[in-house]
Design a protein around this nucleic acid. Structure first.
Length: 122
RNA sequence: CGAGAUGGCUAGACAAUCGCCGCUUUAUCGUUGUAUCUCAACCUUCGGGUUUUGGUAGACGGAUGAAGGGGAGGAAAGUCCGGGCUCCAUAGGGCAGAGUGCCAGAUAACGUCUGGGGGGCGCGAGCCUACGACCAGUGCAACAGAGAGCAAACCGCCGAUGACUGCUUAGGCAGAACAGGUAAGGGUGAAAGGGUGCGGUAAGAGCGCACCGCGCGGCUAGUAAUAGUUCGUGGCACGGUAAACUCCACUCGGAGCAAUUUCAAAUAGGGUUCCACUACUCUUAGAAGUUAAUGCGCGGCCCGCGUUGGAACCGGGUAGAAAGCUUGAGCCUUAGAGCAAUCUAAGGCCUAGACGAAUGAUUGUUCACGACAGAACCCGGCUUAUCGGCCAUCUCGCACC
RNA sequence: GCGAGUAUAGCUCAGCUGGUAGAGCGAUACCUUGCCAAGGUAUAGGUCACGAGUUCGAGCCUCGUUACUCGCU
């Protein structure tokens, strides 16, 4: 069954949710994003966002990036295993337009799930 | 038509699909407290009370689904002022400290706004303006300059119809000082103690006079700041700097929603009561000390590591959750008061409330091709950023009628 | 979100209550040495973060802007 919703259960909410992901995670990188991922005990993936003020100066710009990431996550969540993902912004992310951001994210979801499977086998 | 001034409005639009966050209505589920019925136990002063089992009712909160409707700004920003609100402190007042600073008004309040005055800029419409007081006191002014704060003599001018010196044809000729006076001229400086003219004088000087300017007082206009004056008076400084100390007048208690309040896991620890506790020692009987017991390594001993309390209640309180959180000095319309800011009255309206933080994404059509930029307790201002578009009033220039 | 602070030479910092900007290290050149280091001498290097205002004059005083730092989860 395909799901396109994005309720609260699919988010990382508190610092106690975030900190395990930063401890030796699986990584995936593109021009403007860094993804960190780790398996959780639930039956769905969860998403957390970290957009530093240094990377994108204005609140409007940061909101735009977050919306793009959430939108992409929402549409691709059924293709992801039960992992916690933290998305970090990299430098000059504000220069990219929405279409390019979406294109990068589509690749990254596949990449991160593949790498997680590999890490499980090892 | 061109150039400009002021004030106000606006901040892409529409459609489809998939999503996010409150609200309202509704359906289902589950839950605990409430009301009522019921089962059982205990207590009883036989009225009842406490605990407990199952059902029903409506209500509130919760979960899920459906429908309806709503969902960032003019600056949401900077946090520069002011206020509400909350907690802390507080008899009242003063000192200290901080702020404001022409006058009047508006306001909950303000460093804001409105109107007026003074000064400056602009042909003008208009714009800018921290604009109280240095005859209460203290301080500052580098360098330059003679002199920089109860003014001062460097050059110059007067003194000079020449003290004195030299020459001499004894007629004169040449050079020339001091005391003292002088603020007209030169020069220095950001700044050098009224301006012009006439008189006056050895030369000068408000020394005298006229006009202008200025101070003080009066009168007139104005609530006032202030302005005017064919009025009187003073010969004329009372220089600059208070975003220097200071004085004067007025204002201000402090901290901030990460304030504050409520509920409250796990873990550790505190208090009270009851129960349990091998022996001995100390003793104000307290699990205080020693011993002992017991679990594991290990079947036993040595040895090592660990345990020696349990239950109930109370209080504090972390994670987390909730309240604070949006009905407010609110918005719209009309009428009235006022030059205006604004105020009053009547009627109508409810217009984000999130919490890693919601308005988006994609596609299509269209136009002027979309700037600055995202609420975080709430308001009133200021300041800063900003692609443009529209409206109103006014000014100047050119042309035409 | 709220509160507090800093900005001066390439680096680390002075600069008292306004008078025309310095020190140390570093850089460059020269001296010294057979060569290097050390030492000595000299030189360059500053829009005092930026924009206004007050003043005769601003690194300093006042207002605004920008960047950075710290404290309160």
């Amino acid at each position: 069954m395909k799901s396109n919703t994005f309720p609260r259960e699919l988010r990382l909410l508190t610092p106690s949710h975030f900190s395990p992901v930063f401890d030796r995670p699986v990584k995936a990188v593109s021009d403007h994003f860094t993804l960190l991922a780790k398996y959780n005990d639930l039956d769905h993936p969860r998403l957390g966002l970290t957009i530093a003020k240094k990377k994108e100066k204005t609140a409007v710009g940061r909101n735009r990036i977050k919306r793009n990431i959430r939108e992409s996550f929402r549409l691709n969540q059924d293709n992801l295993p039960n992992i916690d993902i933290v998305v970090l912004a990299r430098d000059n992310i504000g220069d990219a337009d929405n279409a390019y951001l979406q294109k990068q994210l589509n690749k990254l979801w596949k990449k991160i799930s593949l790498r997680c499977e590999q890490s499980l086998k090892r």
